[in-house]
Each structure stands twice: as C-alpha cells, then as structure tokens.
Amino acid sequence: MSSSAAERGQEYALETKGLLKQFASVKAINHLTIAVPRGGITSIVGPNGSGKSTLINMLSGTLPIDEGMVVLDGTALRVIKPYDSPSHGVTRTFQEVRLFDQMSLWDNMLVVLTKRNVLGALLERAGTAHSSRAQELLEMVGLWDKRAAFAEELSYGQRKLLEIARALAMDVKLYLFDEPFAGLFPAVLEKVKVLLQDLKKEGKTIIFIEHNMDLIRELSDYIFVLDSGELLAEGEVHEVLARPEVIEAYLGT
C-alpha cells in the first residue's frame, strides 16, 4: 500500500505497522498500516467512528497500543507513553478543546515551554523563563491582550486558537491536529489555515482530521481515508477524492 509514497523517493515522518486498538468487541483500529510522508500536510478523513481520533490518540500515547508498532522518525515503538510523545517528536491538539481552564492564557502557553524534569522545573522562575516565545505565539493568534484572563473565559474560537498556539509552542517535527477547523467562524478559520501553512513552510509534518472537503483540497498534499478502522484509500488528494469507493463511503449508508 505504501509503495506509492515510496516511489516518490521520500522518507516517512511516521509509519504504523499492523496497529490494533480494540474496545470490547469493536476494533476501532484494525491492523492499520500506513506511512505518512515527511513534510507537508496530510489529512485523515473518514465517516464518524472510523477510528480517526483513536489513531491520533494512539500516536500521541493518550491511548495505549494493543498490537503492532509505530515508527516515528526511524524509531520503532511498541509502547508510547503520553509523556514520551514530545521526545519522539509528536504533539497534538484535542477534538474537544482541552485547555487548563482555571489558568491564565499566559500560564497556558508557558506551561508547555518550561523544563520537563522535576528538579529543573523547581529551579526555574515561573514569571521570567521563556516569556518571549510565549508572547510571540500569543501575539500570533491575537490573544496577547487577553493574557491575564482565565482560559475558561474565552470564546470557542479563541479556545481553539489558544490550543493550536499551545501545540505550536512545542518544537517538534510532527503535529497532530484533531479537527482544528470544526465549528469555527470564517475569520478564525482563515487564521488557522495560515498557521498551518506557515508550519508547513517551516518544514514540519502536519496531520489533521477534517470533514470539510473544500478545506482538505485546499490545504493537504496527501490523504488517508479510513473506514471502520481500516485503510480505504490513500494518495494525492484530488485523485483519491475522485475515487468512487471513497465517495460511497462518505455518502452511502
């Protein structure tokens, strides 16, 4: 299946081999083998319950892997702990925005920039370290003026922006966005689009889940179509979206 990508002579940012996730009797991800090309924007589409979010959760360690392995940046992994995922070069956003609600925006940004080990964090003053990067990112998403407010006081679009900014603060190679455009007003949507394209220009790999075909056509270079935890199709966006079985999976049933 992955031969088409290999022919293009790229190496992969991410590969999964026989990945399996089972909830009771349902196989949410059923022996999935995919290879995501390095650089550029890859989208994952599929009907509801096809295992898109489950896949993202497994790649970021939020859900444990039942079987199979993930190759991240050349390292084969059978177990991904959530706290190890940044060191494997992965970060993510969540489908239902998960911010630190009763913390200021400022703290929400800084908390992902500081030292990871306990002792280092203890010796680092909260107010000073990494503040320039946090300011840069908050200004980028236009939330600098609200930096003292609690995250719970933001509107939905602002929350979505803040979560993306928080992910951008992580200096990793692979960004997983779980429905970053869902429920956004056009103005905010444009902003997120620009953020993703800028990230692509920096040479990062981006994977995102989306239902809106226009957005997918506009943004992504490569696409995977999932259905019931299995790979239905993959390839260049325009070509894949024209295939009859893909159209059926979306419009049928």
């Binding site: 939020t62 630190f100 908390v111 030292k115 280092g120 203890l122």
Partner: peptide, 26 residues
C-alpha cells in the same frame, strides 16, 4: 515552589492531567 515552573505544572495537572502529560510532563 508555587512561583516556579514546577508550580505551574502542578496547576496544569489539577486542570487536566491527561492533557499536560501529552506535553511531556510525567
């Protein structure tokens, strides 16, 4: 303690332990 980066991570744990772990904190 609370005015260090450590203290801020504690608050993040209070808010959403699953989310802060994804960012590399044990």
């Amino acid at each position: 303690v609370v005015s260090s980066s450590f203290g801020r991570v504690l608050m993040a744990i209070r808010e959403d332990e699953g989310a802060i772990e994804v960012f590399g904190y044990k």
